[in-house]
Amino acid sequence: MSKIRVAVLVGSLRQGSFNRHLALAVGRLAPPEFTFEHIRIDHLPLYNQDFDGAYPDACKRLKQEVEAADALLFVTPEYNRSIPGVLKNAIDIASRPWGTNSFAGKPAGVIGISVGATGTALAQQHLRGVLAYLDVPTLGQPEVFIHNKEGLMDADGKITSEGTHRFLQGFVDRYVEWVRLITRK
């Protein structure tokens, strides 16, 4: 089987981010032909249509990294019932200027973890709406709204809860199958 490159965009900049740990855990559960490349978004300028004609280098790099990927994985926290500004900014940058949407047609998964009981359900709903507009086919099921509790993960982001590990493995298996179907790899 050929390699499948997955661009991972984590919407949390926090050093001890639960979502970054979740992204790493998902990558460990995937088969070896899937490589998960975490895309840096913390250094991007705020999107401004004035630079559509001459994109800053950091923005060009983001677009190139997304374009080089076969698939996408968005891992988002929920801030004020929506997606974090840093993630929306990265999406705006990589989908612009008009007619150069780097995300178009790439299959995506959307997952998240939060200390709140509903996980990241509303943030994911908002993100799915944005991705639908950008022509990003998004895996619908299973949805992954993880409620972070004491003992769920260790300090390295390894899932220590057997039930959560099984659930995430089910998501990864379905995501892998779906990405292969869409990319025909």
Rank of each mutant, 00 (worst) to 15 (best):
L122E: 08
K3C: 00
R14L: 05
L13R: 09
E150W: 08
A155N: 12
V144D: 07
L44A: 09
H126V: 08
I146Y: 11
G163Q: 15
E177M: 11
R166D: 12
V176L: 03
L44Y: 09
S95K: 02
I41L: 07
G116D: 12
P84Y: 01
E162P: 05
D135T: 10
A7G: 09
Q15C: 02
D92Y: 08
A90N: 00
N148I: 03
E37V: 13
K106D: 06
G157N: 09
R128S: 03
H38E: 15
R40I: 07
F103Q: 01
L22A: 07
D154L: 10
A68P: 00
A90R: 01
W98G: 05
H147W: 14
G140D: 14
S17R: 04
V86M: 11
E162S: 14
S82D: 13
V172A: 11
V110N: 04
V26R: 04
L24S: 11
L24V: 09
F36G: 05
D92V: 05
T183G: 01
F145N: 15
R81Q: 12
D70P: 00
V176I: 12
P137V: 09
T160Q: 15
D135R: 15
R174I: 08
I39P: 00
Q49H: 08
A132W: 06
K3P: 00
R166M: 08
D92P: 01
M1W: 06
I113Q: 04
N89R: 07
V144C: 10
A23M: 11
I41Q: 04
G27I: 04
N80Q: 11
Q124C: 07
E143F: 08
P45Y: 08
L152H: 10
D156F: 01
P31C: 02
P142G: 07
G53I: 09
I93S: 08
S161E: 14
G129H: 14
G151L: 12
R180S: 05
V26P: 01
Q49C: 01
K88Y: 08
P84V: 05
I83D: 06
I146E: 09
V6E: 02
L139M: 14
K3V: 10
S17V: 01
P107W: 10
M153P: 00
M1V: 10
T35K: 03
N48V: 06
G105E: 02
H147L: 07
S114K: 08
L127A: 06
G105K: 06
F18A: 13
I4E: 02
E65H: 01
V10I: 13
R180Y: 03
P77E: 07
G116F: 06
N101Y: 05
Q64N: 11
P84G: 15
P137L: 11
L127W: 04
R174E: 15
P45R: 09
W98C: 05
V179I: 15
K158I: 14
V115H: 02
K63I: 05
P84M: 06
P84H: 12
A68F: 00
P31Q: 15
G157A: 11
T35W: 00
A117Y: 10
R96S: 04
L46H: 14
R96W: 03
G116W: 03
H126I: 04
N148P: 00
G112S: 04
V136K: 11
A25Q: 02
E33W: 09
K106T: 04
D70H: 13
E67C: 03
S102N: 02
L62T: 04
F51M: 06
